[in-house]
Design a protein around this nucleic acid. Structure first.
Lengths: 345, 345
DNA sequence: GTTAGCACTCACTCATATAGAGTGCTAATA
DNA sequence: TATTAGCACTCTATATGAGTGAGTGCTAAC
């Protein structure tokens, strides 16, 4: 479909635009030694590329800018992985040097370093809480009619909810329930917690222990573990350094998006393992139409347990970011496996 | 010092600028019916006010703008409280209608409503965790060498930390320690937790129980409750609607500030009860030099337990905000007293 | 003490001119 | 036939100058 020269011109155009953020013209391109053609030749090819939808002009007599389709083609066919320097790899490894126990700390630090290395904003989707397993359940009464339920998971994560106690429940009633739950629900995914809890409720009901049943009901309501991914950012403000976001309106809508992604369910759902690139409107959100998001999953064994992402302008340095994410997600998988493998196995 | 007419002119100038965000000129002022003087007279007074530092010009032939000193004078001497409409009061009260148990929810909702009513960004400093008291302490072992320590406070708040267990500690060792701590530390302010924990450590040491002592040491390190105030925002992006923040640079530095206040210790320290206004550079932070922060404390009895604030441009509607904060902090004090009074008394 | 009048200043807007970078098209060239 | 040179054209960006409006300071009159 595309001639070799057209491929070259497309690639060089995208590369140049990624670097300079300025529309690139034929004269300018022909000056590069990789492009041994006259401006006129380049113009012809560029005109063809534009006709095919890979390039665009910002106005009639401007240079060309890659279109979304152009980026897509570039990303799909022209992405030569970039070498990550030793010092950078060292920097990434430094995350795991001081033996941190809390995965949250690891995630935080990863976010910071990733953003530092790329100069873009990094997003870490924490381990999905709902994939953790219940390690210990307990209830601490607060007042006559309220108590806090606490679930510790195998990874050391703690979920807690205040819930109300139906009238006239005694400490021993509660203790009985805690025992009941610990007996039956330890090892259960938070994910299935509610369903299992209902099963327990049913069992209790069958034993005619109506009192406990009330309590379980109230507790059940409190224990909805919403799928609200916890999102960690690194370099949240980096995006605003990009010239494309000099407009306060755009800046705001992106900031707004960032503050509310965790409430948009499934936004980061990964269809596939490995690295995934979403460009502009592929993100299915207005605020993101000038952004690209590159996501990589990290996993333990076959199970995807989380993902890391970089968000930047569509004009972002895909080569570098993809390579970095690749290294990082690999390291994260490895190190988190070490930490979490015990309890999961 | 100031003549009555100068007072009037200062007041009207500030009011007008607050409303329009435009420098106000003498001619414009003299058109108002509250100001029955000719432009020339007004000019003379304005010149005096400028000389005294209450007003400023943006350029040689522009109208006047209040200086920081001008706002300060206005706020200190000219703040007539504004009536809050019934429907607005109703809206505030709605926060407490559905009987919420979790204070965090109340705080969140308050932040949202406050921002909605003012069109500025609201900040809620959650109840200072360190003022809560220990209700129950427990430890859940995770692996051979790590465990999570959990502290439930009287208000239902849960703090948790992963810490490492020195080698070869048995479950019964841990149980012993948990009992020990529960015996001695229930009712202690989180605030003093570490000091008391050290006392316990010493006592244990005296009893020659070296093993437990190790464990306590490790735990002690983990239980540093940093003074990292949890900050809740309402309408975080509202500030960007203000014309003074149309510049991306300013917008960014403010956003950055907001994301990092909780790491700047004591930034919201209240010297006094009631309402406090900090204008521009009085906030002691570069990013805030075009902003004012109005803070109000809410308290239970004599004890300040938290504060709420509105952050807006220096040109903000002080009258209205002060009045609203007044109502709100009163309501919060009252309602939180109801919820928390039991455990505190 | 207050106001009218006047000269002056400055920001802002609107044309207009110009330079620079780019384009498309056509004809000449290898 | 594929490539290139040449040329007219287009559009942005920048500078310039005139005109307007809102403001000021100062002085003299009320």
């Amino acid at each position: 479909m595309l001639t070799n020269r057209q491929l070259l011109i497309l690639q060089v155009t995208v590369d140049d635009f990624i670097e300079t953020a300025q529309p690139v013209g034929s004269r300018q391109l022909s000056k590069k030694e990789e492009v041994p053609f006259s401006p006129a030749t380049i113009r012809n090819d560029m005109a063809d590329l534009e006709e095919m939808g890979y390039l665009e002009k910002t106005h009639t007599s401007s240079g060309r800018v890659p279109s979304q389709k152009g980026y897509r083609y570039y990303v799909d066919n022209m992405l030569t992985p970039q070498r990550i320097s030793k010092s950078e790899i060292k920097q990434i490894r430094s995350i795991f040097e001081e033996r941190m126990v809390e995965t949250e700390q690891i995630i935080r630090k990863s976010a910071a370093i990733l953003s530092e290395l790329t100069n873009y904003t990094s997003i870490m989707l924490g381990l999905d809480v709902r994939k953790h397993r219940v390690k210990r359940f307990s209830i601490v009464p607060l007042t006559d009619d309220s108590a806090v339920a606490i679930i510790v998971t195998d990874s050391g994560h703690v979920e807690n909810r205040v819930f109300s106690i139906p009238e006239s429940f005694t400490a021993s009633d509660i203790e009985r329930m805690v025992n009941l739950i610990n007996e039956r629900l330890v090892g259960v995914h938070l994910h299935e917690l509610q369903a299992k809890l209902e099963a327990v409720t049913l069992a209790v009901l069958r034993q005619n222990n109506g009192r406990l049943n009330d309590l379980l009901g109230s507790l059940n309501k409190a224990l909805t573990i919403e799928h609200e991914d916890k999102v960690y950012y690194g370099g949240k403000m980096q995006l605003l350094n990009q010239p494309e976001f000099n407009d306060v309106e755009k800046a705001r809508s992106i900031m707004y998006w960032m503050d509310h992604v965790n409430q948009m369910p499934g936004l980061f759902h990964l269809d596939q393992k490995g690295i995934q690139i979403r460009i502009g409107t592929e993100n299915n959100h207005l605020a993101m139409e000038d952004c690209s998001i590159i996501t990589a999953s990290y996993d333990i064994g076959e199970e995807q347990i989380g993902s890391i992402a970089i968000i930047g302008p569509t004009r972002m340095d895909y080569k570098r970011v993809v390579s970095l994410l690749d290294v990082m997600s690999g390291d994260l998988s490895r190190e988190l496996s070490k930490i979490l493998h015990g309890p999961h196995g």
